[in-house]
Every structure is written in structure tokens, then in C-alpha cells.
Design a protein around this nucleic acid. Sequence first.
DNA 1: CTGACACACTAATATATGTTTCGCATTGAT
DNA 2: ATCAATGCGAAACATATATTAGTGTGTCAG
Lengths: 250, 250
Amino acid sequence: MVNVFIRKLDAAGGLNETDHETLRRLSSHDRLVPARQDLIREGDRTETVYLVLSGFACCYKILPRGRRCISGLMVPGDFCDPRASILDEMDHSIATMTDCTVVEIPRQTMWRLIEDHPRIAHAVCWSMLVDGAVTREWLIGIARRLAPERMAHLFCELLLRLRAVGLAASNEYALPFTQSDLADMLGLTPIHVNRVLRDLRSRGLIVLSRRRLRILDEARLIAFCSFNPNYLHRIPVIDRISTEKAMNDY
Amino acid sequence: MVNVFIRKLDAAGGLNETDHETLRRLSSHDRLVPARQDLIREGDRTETVYLVLSGFACCYKILPRGRRCISGLMVPGDFCDPRASILDEMDHSIATMTDCTVVEIPRQTMWRLIEDHPRIAHAVCWSMLVDGAVTREWLIGIARRLAPERMAHLFCELLLRLRAVGLAASNEYALPFTQSDLADMLGLTPIHVNRVLRDLRSRGLIVLSRRRLRILDEARLIAFCSFNPNYLHRIPVIDRISTEKAMNDY
DNA sequence: CTGACACACTAATATATGTTTCGCATTGAT
DNA sequence: ATCAATGCGAAACATATATTAGTGTGTCAG
């Protein structure tokens, strides 16, 4: 298996082979966690940082009426904020959504890593900033985008995030979520997620079956939701010209 | 004027008088910026960190249809992420909402400050983490809270944030926003903000007039929106018992 | 093979919020 | 004093999404 952790941090730039080796050693002691299991709960003291090597995890909170609200998604290569131990207690929970391979990194190990490896520290810092930008973009989507665009936007974001770690074939990737999961991410009801999926399908933008998402026309999907990848802070992987062309078609 | 910057970072704990002096020197060269002026624009390279000493500023983005979406609020004492210069370019803009006193801190000065003053570095780090938690809480509110609760939640949050820097009398503070501003923060239309304000007023929870918000019954307001201040990571300033009592009334 | 269960799908209805439109008050400039 | 600009208040209407209530389908334990 490719080391998604290295792939992810490499996007920040500046890592050399020694750093790669360090990261490889760090992520060698992994552990399997079954789907739908809490890794950390709101209120816990945080002593370890979690790194996801395979599968999907999420940050969530349970609201008074018992509804779950997912405030962030962790795809392979992602890890939770190593600075969290500065805070008294977690203000949200983290749980696996699918079976996951995770690495538990003790707080001290993480701090030492950052102290001793300036280039890795830089990359980790970059990753944290991107995570913040993603959260803001989700906020914006829920605040101002209609459900179909919002979902299309999520699919575009995941395409880029998964591509960055080598987990998306040209226009297709595993999307092992139930419609309820999607609802909790998008701030919708499962029923409406179903309707919106039908809508996107009938527009010929996507096909979602057997837990795989196929994007039929990337440029049109991007245009449909006015997706601007700048907040992911990566070298653009997307064919801008064809995107702009499709923009005008709308 | 009290130094709100010091008050704010003090909430992280651990600062001594020397640190206070350092921070005082840092924030001595301030500058007046009129209301509704951009400090940084999306796409800019970030060379300076902004610190707000008085007034309100916000992080925002303009969406395709020209709508503004506010993804974060800066109250006196707040500053933008000092690590931002790691990224290639800003993914959002920052603008004043009222007349503001701001301090521009060059990137290098900020890094040196953090290198040389471990306790300040710790406090800055704490502040960044809290900012992230606030963004997540806004996301959750927009996703799952109804407009009246969402607005009440914002009012509770601001009460605590302003109290922390000494800018809220027991149950009253300056709220110098237009209804349009509130709409852009809450993901609503200005018209609906008007309706919701009327609703909160008619419930006897708040009075908003002449740009000041008065909270008539703090415990009831907290109960009304199930406000849980844990995400602000401060020593609770709120009378928990009376809050829980009011919770049961609902 | 069977029941239990989770999940996908659909329809009918309800409601929170958006849209459009208008009037009024305040403020500041001329 | 007059006027435009801005913000607040409100009504009528439109619509995106939620709610409620169900049907069908695949999977898995027994």
C-alpha cells in the first residue's frame, strides 16, 4: 500500500527522503478499528493524535435533540490537530465511519517530531491550515449553497483530496457512506439527500452505486457548483480551461 | 483603555508580567481603519498578521451570485492566524465591520515573538485552537439549529467573548452590526433576521436598540438555544445552576 | 429458508426560510 | 429645507427542505 501519510504531507512541499523515512517509521505501528467506533469523545482529555491510514473518519457532535452533526471528514492521510493537547478537553468527538487503519501517536512523540524535524513541522502546520480552510468552506456551503450544489461541491472536494493521496482513479472513487452519513455532513435530512442524489444523477453529473462515485463529466460538475479549489491550497490538478468553458455553458 | 490583547491571551493561562510587557510593546503601534474596509483580500499573499484592538472585523468570502458569507468574527483582542504565511495565498478576505483600531504585525516579528517567548507561543496556539472550535460551532449552528436558536447562540457566544476582554457589562454589550451583517453571519436573509429579532424580543429574551444588545434573562437565553460554552475553552463564567434550572423550564 | 435489520427509495404534507415589494425613520450632504 | 442613501419594519407570496409514513431490496445470523 502507498503511504498516504507521506503523500499527503508531500503536498506541502519541501520534504526530503530522510523525512519520508521518519514518517514511514512513525506510521508503521497501525491498528485496525471497526466502522462506527469512537476514537475520542467530546469531553475527553486528549493524550494521543490519530492518523488515518485507510478508511474514513469524521469529527462530529451530538446536538440536544440527538442529531449528529459532522463538522469535518478525515480521509486517508489525514490526522487530527497535534496541538489539541493544549486545550483542557475535546470539544467534539472523532469516530470511524468505515473500517479504518489508524496510528495512535502519543502527544510527546508528536511534539518531538515537530521539534526535531523542521520540514515536517512545516508540512504539519500547512496541513492544519488547510483543514481550517476546509471547515470554513463547509460553513460557507451550508450557509449559502443549495443542497444540490452543496453535495456536488463535496464530491469535487473529495475528488481532489482523494486524488492527492492516490485514492481516486481518474474520475471515480470509493464513497462508502450511507445517505444518512451524507445528510449529517451536508446539514440535510437523509430523505433529501436521496432526492438530491436523484437530481444529480438525472442531470448526468454523477453515478453513485455500490459505494462508488463516478463523476461523468468533471468539468460540468465543477461548473455546476462553482467549485473553486483554491482553499485546498494545492497545485491545481484540474484542467482549468475546460472548466471555464463548462462554466459558460451554465 | 484596557489592553484587550493581553486580556485575551491571559485566558490561555501561564503568562507573567514580562510577557504582558512584551505584548504591550507589540500592540503599541496601532492604526485606525474606517468601517467596511478590506484588510486582506482573497488571493493576496499574506505578509502581515492583523490584531484588532477595538471594533469588529470579519473573515468573509464572496460567492458567485455576489452574496457575502461571513465565516468568522474578530472582536477586540482577536488576531488572524500567524501561520497563514505558510500558505501560498489567502483563501478568504478580512474586513473591518466598524471603525477599528488594528495593529499590523510583520510576519517576521510574529515568528520571532513565538520563538523567543514560549509562554506567549503557548497562548497564541491556544487562541488558534479556540478559533477553530468556534468555526466548527458556527458550522454546526448553521447546519442544524433553527434561525432563532442560531441567533441566540451567537448572542451568547459574543457575551462570553466580549466579557473575556472586559467589553460586556453584566448583560449588555455593543452590537454595532446591521441586520444585513447579522444575516451574512447566520446564513439568513436580512428580512428573516428582522423577523427572528422580533421573535426573540417578543419572547422577552433580548432588547436590541441603538446598536446595543441587552440580554434580559441570561439563563433563559442560554436554555433557549442549548448553549454549551465548552468550545470556548474558558473557565466558566456562567452560573451553571440557574442555567440548568431554566433548561428544565423549556 | 426465514426473520430481522439496515439501507435505498418514494409520496404527501408541513414548515422554515427566501423573495419581492413597499413604507417609514434617520442621517448626512447640498 | 430638501434630497439621496441607508437601515429597519412588515406583508404577501414562493420555494427549498423537513417531517411523516410508508414500500421495496439486499444482507446476514440462525
